[in-house]
Design a protein around this nucleic acid. Structure first.
Lengths: 234, 234
DNA sequence: GATTATCCACTTGTATGCCAGTATTCTCTA
DNA sequence: TAGAGAATACTGGCATACAAGTGGATAATC
């Protein structure tokens, strides 16, 4: 465990592999909202039997990313603006609380914070490279790693996990807005500013940046919904 | 859907039934922390094949309530004081945010609030009856329903669900303290006071009561751990 | 007596087939 | 031509069988 960012498990069951593959496909919209999918089809796609697919699906149902229609098939969940806003609120509340609890402790620079700082800085560099290439997917991966790291300022692994679950819902919308409505340079500047203010212990400023950052989705979502009405619940 | 408290689904798969049964058994400590359990044993116990049991277990693993030891069996997760404290913090932060967002709206009494008020009041009556009988399990069920309802003051279903997940961890400790360290009458008074202050829109007082209420666990947990050391991680 | 290798009983992981439910299509009748 | 009923093709839910991994017990060796 380095700076709260969990190292990749070396040995995963087929079910776990299926879960990660399918979740990634849903969050990046390769499996589109509203699209019908079938157990046997996914089994063939991922080159395994239905059993591990079913295991993965069980967890994706818990994540609210797939909806099972018994004996009919399954549907990738449509994006619910209510669900996205609820998830955003939860994320905001938890990340703010996490930073409030953690920024004061950051001042007492320890080895643990050295590790965390290293991870955060590598994520910022990764984002910069992705932005330079205009690679939206890579940028979002780096964005995800950055926020996963930042939230560990508050040293609460369970909170990190809950916020990660919420981010899956937000990212289905952000995939459609990053690069268009969400400008790379603006996002990079905000991430840098957030981190610099954490480092110097300016809690008030850091929280202000974070709230501004997270509320962009509120503005963007109606525009995304207008552009992709089929992806959203009515 | 009445007052945010989801009506019981009439038709559940065997896997869903298994999940609810096993989760309840874990949270109420009928399946004890650290206890080894086996798929075939649980299948026999719940009178079904291993397949729905495995489905239920997948979700219990996500809940962090069961730990699979591949090819060896499974273990009911030991209670981690770190995990309990992290879950408590998340619950506190989210419930406070929910009430903050909702108490102001409560003043504008609508039909929706009439329904919520009815549910809350029926839960308070349920708790009183359970306390009168000294029925700890029943009291905790009513407590659970009460808090599930109260949190819907903020009208965020996703938040309600996340807080419910957190409460599972807290309740494994509370099962051991309610009736002993946690006095029924004190808990009843606090629930009543919380509700009365929500009704009259006194946000400051309601939040103060809620925080006091939720922090009792901080005091109780070391005592519970001392009394039941085998239930806790070292 | 200690160490190492082997075996076995146990488990979970996975594959597959059957059952039952659902929706669409086809056929028959008025 | 339209409506009702039957047939069919598809699905997920579930049971069961087989594969593979693990750790303890036992035997063999030094």
């Amino acid at each position: 465990m380095i700076g709260g960012v969990r190292l990749r498990e070396e040995k995963r069951s087929l079910g776990e592999q299926a879960y990660l593959s399918l979740r990634e496909a849903i969050v990046t919209l390769r499996l589109k909202p509203g699209q019908m999918v079938y157990e046997s089809e996914l089994a063939e796609l991922l080159d395994m039997s239905r059993t591990p697919i079913r295991e993965a699906i069980r967890t994706l149902v818990v994540d609210d990313l797939i909806e099972v229609l018994p004996q009919r098939g399954m549907k990738v969940s449509l994006i619910s603006t209510t669900k996205v806003e609820e998830a955003r609120v939860i994320r905001e509340v938890l990340e703010i609380a996490s930073l409030k609890g953690g920024i004061d402790r950051w001042k007492n620079f320890s080895d643990t914070h050295d590790e965390l700082a290293a991870v955060v800085e590598s994520c910022l560099a990764w984002q910069k490279r992705a932005a330079a290439r205009g690679d939206i997917k890579d940028f979002l991966d780096a964005d995800e790693a950055f926020h996963r790291a930042i939230v560990m300022v508050g040293k609460n692994r369970t909170l990190q996990s809950v916020v990660g679950q919420m981010r899956a819902h937000l990212n289905r919308v952000r995939v459609l807005s990053v690069g268009k409505l969400e400008n790379f340079d603006v996002l990079l500047d905000e991430h840098n500013a957030l981190y610099q203010n954490i480092k110097k212990g300016d809690q008030s400023e850091a929280l202000s940046i974070l709230m501004h950052h997270l509320r962009r989705l509120v503005t963007d979502m109606p525009l995304v919904q207008a552009a992709y009405p089929d992806y959203f619940t009515s």
